[in-house]
Design a protein around this nucleic acid. Structure first.
Length: 977
RNA sequence: GCGGAUAUGGUGAAAUUGGUAGACAUGCUAGACUUAGGAUCUAGUGCCGUGAGGCGUGUGGGUUCGAGUCCCUCUAUCCGCACCA
């Protein structure tokens, strides 16, 4: 019997499903291991071959861990709230829940075909009320907590209120936007509205008027990480700044822990760096500058307090509160003008315009706190109102932007660095010796910083401070297809819905669009459409896409619990995700938010760990390989209009094969040339172009256009298929290569329906089987690398499985196994393979794993090995990669009942690999020239003697005595001449 | 501008601690076989050279008996951040 994957694969998938082979149990004596994939958004387009790449890798690893005796949790689910389903709903009126359910079904179907070992009993969907009940519940906990900088964790708001009632907020050390200090008496005198406003400034999720990224085309706000190059990540629509009352998450509170927590994680440095950069910690000092003839002070933040004596001017952001107040009358007009032009520039223009130095003097002066000198105050749009205090002290000798600004406006540049030339550029190194700086002179930069901060603090004009670039995350979306908030409003104040009423389910609406007044879609819902209604109205916003994905890995541990989001005992058993596989595009979104929520839940004692994903691997994207065909356009010069008109009367499209097109123009005898001549003549003869001239002028253009990759195999066009694919191809003329084939071009780009370059896993499973697909995707190259998809090598992998099958069978296809003691040779092959594969798996090198299987089967085939002992171990080794064929062969090996999934991973025996001899490569001056087979037992001196006595080696020595001989026992000999 | 990554045959790639560069696969060339199959088998295939041999891991330098691997310089491509004080 031939290797019939079409029969074998469905058979085993059915057995796995019926027997619940991959069910993870909590009551296990085995050690646990949690392997997680980033769950997919179920889009309408279905899976393409890029999606399963990470899933295959994680599945191989999960299966490997089972063989190694671990209790493995390997779940899958769907991130099923999101924009595409909603937009489809807007267009068609179909409820997004229906579309989503259909897409989920399609995904499940496609995933099932690949033979993953998921425990489907634990499936979660973020859009199911049973799930988002707990997303709402976590939101409530965040609302009810603030971040205490003294205990360094989230604490209950009730504790804060108790402190307010007793002592006011003077001694409160919390992460807060509250800028006022009040006493207990004042607090108790505040009305409900005033108290609410103050508490909002402390809560970890809070309602506030904030500048948000508003996307008019999508009708919603976006988080910073949902914007790429100034346009929306989804759809590429423009984004503008708008002041709106929004829910936000006080992620800033966790900035320091999110930063330091990275150190203990087994992630790539590049992802860690992206997060570090996003958090953007800078250590420095805040300093207040007095304004001449004014009560007001300007507070600045600087990372270089050591350069305080180099300050020669100050710059405020144009939007800074003090600008109008301090501007002198003579500069008022120019300042107003500058502010106006700055406000008209979009954030994008402002970014693009970095080279242009602009600014305006206010006419006001600040007083240097140490020298008492007068310092000009300017405004300039290179200072951002949203970072630090929106004002900077400018030290032109130590900062290039300040330097350029000073040069441009002719402001004094003071040099405060010893032996540094600043005539051309600023000296921006944080090293060297400070000079011309009073009490700082002669100090190294580091010491000067410390001393400067001490002096500033002693004077009471500032304090050492740390700033973070990380912004609080906007949490409201003006959308339908997301989690409703467990919030209602009464007299304009937000209130939480009680736990017993959760979940607040999505109400039915007539349309999925905003209302006429611009309120979000949920505002359309009748009062009766809500499953719970309280107060004046419910919250109309919904939560963003990242809400549900910030904690889903916890729900898999306890997916059906109706009383808790996760049982603490179960969370204590499974703990962190041991291995997380997914794309790196989530670096500043999902991965940061999930860490934030995990730390919060840890602070509140709901779970016992504060990092969700211990080890992470980021698989590279698989890019599409679009097929291009070159079309020839012939146009003629119209005498009357003097323009080239496309030829319309020639009723056939002309397409030309790759190399013919490329040699066109250089090769006068080309096939294409004669075709063009013929067409020209036909056209002239037909007299349909008869604009007058006796001599026609023609222009030839060759334009590539995309065609479906289904019509192309290894760049060779299947003309018959193409003719069926599109009308314009059916009656076309094809200029082929000399050997009568037609070659297409290709382009590497993202897979997308519109580019006709999507390869679905389904087709390949149908053609070659899931085991081949799994191994081929791994064989393509290192998991982390971006790589274009192509199927050139898939036959090689398929043939490998056939070759393996043949090891077990005789020429007639009957199982034929040797029961004898395995040969030494075969044992050596097997154990070398065990060693290599274990190493490969331990360092997630799946591509070399596949190679090593090929080497092993090639060797065993050479040895004509059909030994049962050898093949049994080989099949276990292979089963994580190619589970279907392995199960089938396992059964043929006599394991009639049960699955290979929990067999014992073979043990490597080093003694079987010991060699008596070694073929020493002999190098002369580092160049390998010959090999000499010598016993391993020789010591270096004996090796040297044996090599020098060798006739071939002597030939290379040409009678000279070697200067030196290096012998590395068991490895190499190098002779220096 | 800052940070990170990558660079090896026609192609995908391998080389884990500095020790035979190009494993494995694909493609190509020649041949065998045949029930013409995305079959199997044999030989060849980094480049130059008839050959002996020479050259060869993006560039240039260095360390070393020995460098794809370590150090320095530069270049190209990709990714992230970007007037962050």
């Amino acid at each position: 019997m031939e290797y019939n994957f079409r029969e074998i694969e469905p058979k085993w998938r059915k057995i796995w499903a019926n027997e619940k082979t991959f069910k993870a149990e909590e009551n296990s004596a085995k050690p646990k291991y949690y392997v997680l994939d980033m769950f997919p958004y179920p889009s309408g387009a279905g899976l393409h071959v890029g999606h399963p790449l990470g899933y295959i890798a994680s599945d191989i690893y999960a299966r490997y861990k089972r063989l190694k005796g671990y209790n493995v949790l390997h779940p899958m689910g769907y991130d099923s709230f999101g924009l595409p389903a909603e937009q489809y709903a807007i267009q068609t009126g179909q409820h997004p829940a229906i579309t989503t359910a259909q897409n989920v079904e399609r995904y499940r179907d496609q995933l099932d075909k690949i033979g993953f070992s998921f425990d489907w009993d634990r499936e979660v969907r973020t859009s199911s009320p049973e799930y988002y009940k707990w997303t709402q519940w976590i939101f409530k906990q965040l609302f009810d907590c603030y971040y205490d900088n003294t205990t360094n964790k989230a604490e209950r708001i009730s504790k804060l209120v108790a402190e307010f009632e007793e002592n006011g907020n003077a001694n409160v050390n919390a992460c807060s936007d509250c800028e006022t200090i009040f006493t207990a008496a004042e607090w108790n005198a505040f009305n409900e509205k005033e108290q609410d406003a103050i508490l909002q400034a402390y809560r970890l999720t809070f309602l506030a008027d904030s500048w948000v990224n508003w996307c008019p085309a999508l009708g919603t706000v976006l988080a910073n990480d949902e914007i790429v190059n100034g346009v929306s990540e989804r759809g590429g629509h423009p984004v503008e700044q708008k002041l709106m009352r929004q829910w936000s998450m006080r992620i800033k509170a966790y900035a320091e822990r999110l930063l330091t927590g990275l150190d203990g994680l087994d992630w790539t440095e590049s992802i860690k760096d992206i997060q570090r950069n996003w958090i953007g910690k800078s250590i420095g000092c805040s300093i207040e500058f007095q304004i001449e003839n004014s009560e007001s002070r300007i507070e600045v933040f600087t990372t270089r307090p050591d350069t305080i004596f180099g300050v020669s001017f100050m710059v405020l952001a144009p939007e800074h509160d003090l600008v109008d107040q301090i501007t002198t009358p003579e500069f008022a007009a120019q300042i107003a003008e500058y502010k106006k032009s700055a406000s008209l520039k979009s954030a994008r223009d402002r970014e693009a315009d970095v080279k242009n130095i602009t600014g305006q003097n206010t006419g006001a002066f600040a007083i240097h706190p140490f020298t008492g000198e007068k310092i000009q105050i300017w405004i300039g749009d290179y200072v951002l109102v949203s970072y630090g205090t929106g004002a900077v002290m400018s030290v032109p000798c130590g900062d290039q932007r300040d330097y350029d600004f000073a040069k441009h406006f002719g402001i004094e540049i003071k040099n405060i660095f010893e032996n540094v030339d600043i005539s051309e550029a600023a000296y921006t190194e944080k090293a060297g010796t400070i000079a011309n700086s009073d009490f700082l002179s002669g100090l190294e930069v580091k010491a000067a910083m410390k001393k400067a901060i001490e002096a500033i603090e002693a004077k009471g004009i500032g304090t050492g401070k740390t700033n973070y670039r990380l912004r609080d995350a906007v949490f409201s979306r003006q959308r339908y297809w997301g989690e409703p908030f467990p919030v209602f409003y009464k007299d304009g104040l937000p209130h939480l819905v009680e736990d017993k009423f959760l979940p607040i389910t999505l109400p039915e609406v007539d349309k999925y669009l905003p209302t006429e007044d611009g309120a979000p879609p949920l505002a359309r819902a009748e009062k009766s459409a809500w499953n719970h209604f309280e107060g004046d109205h419910m919250e109309f916003n919904t939560m963003p896409g990242w809400a549900g994905s910030s904690w889903y890995f916890l729900r898999y541990m306890d997916p059906k619990n109706e009383h808790e989001f996760v049982n603490r005992k179960k969370a204590d058993y499974w703990k962190q995700v041991d291995l997380y596989i997914g794309g790196s595009e989530h670096a500043t979104g999902h991965l940061l938010y999930a860490r934030f929520w995990t730390k919060f839940l840890y602070d509140q004692g709901y779970i016992g760990f504060d990092e969700p994903f211990q080890k992470m691997i980021n698989q590279g994207m698989i890019l599409g390989r679009s097929s291009l065909i070159r079309q020839v356009f012939i146009s003629y010069l119209d005498d009357s209009s003097k323009k080239y008109n496309e030829v319309v009367n020639y009723d056939k499209n002309i397409f030309v094969s790759k190399s013919i097109a490329e040699s066109f123009g250089t090769d006068s005898n080309s096939k294409l040339g004669s075709v063009i001549e013929r067409v020209k003549n036909e056209m002239i003869a037909s007299a349909k172009i008869n604009s007058g001239p006796t001599e026609f002028q023609f222009e030839i253009q060759i334009v590539p256009r995309r065609i479906s990759i289904d019509c192309v195999d290894n760049d060779i066009l299947n003309i018959d298929k193409l003719k069926l694919w599109g009308k314009e191809f059916s009656n076309a003329e094809y200029v082929k290569e000399k050997n009568e084939i037609f070659i297409c071009d290709y382009e590497i780009e993202k897979m997308s329906k519109s580019k006709w370059n999507v390869q679905t896993p389904d087709e390949l499973v149908e053609k070659f089987g899931a085991d081949t697909l799994r191994m081929y995707e791994m064989f393509l190259g290192p998991l982390e690398q971006f790589k274009p998809w192509d199927t050139k090598g898939i036959n090689g992998v398929h043939n490998f499985l056939r070759k393996l099958w043949r090891l077990f069978h005789d020429a007639d296809g009957n199982v034929l196994l040797s029961m004898e003691e395995p040969s030494k040779e075969a044992l050596k092959t097997l154990h070398r393979t065990i060693k290599k594969l274990t190493d490969d798996l331990d360092r997630f090198s799946f591509n070399t794993g596949v190679s090593n299987f090929m080497i092993c089967v090639n060797e065993l085939t050479e040895q004509k090995c059909n030994n049962k002992v050898i093949l049994t171990d080989l099949v276990i080794l292979l089963s994580p990669y190619a589970p279907h064929i392995s199960e089938e062969l396992w059964e043929k090996l006599g394991h009639k009942k049960g699955t290979i999934s929990y067999a014992h991973f073979p043990q490597f025996d080093e003694s079987l690999l010991v060699e008596a001899n070694h073929a020493y490569p002999i190098s002369f001056n580092g160049k390998m020239r010959l090999k000499i087979e010598l016993p391993m037992s020789l010591n270096p001196k004996e090796v040297e003697e044996a090599v020098l006595a060798n006739a071939d080696a002597q030939k290379w020595l040409e009678g000279n005595a070697p200067k030196k001989v290096i012998v590395v026992p068991g490895k190499i000999v190098n002779i220096v001449m």
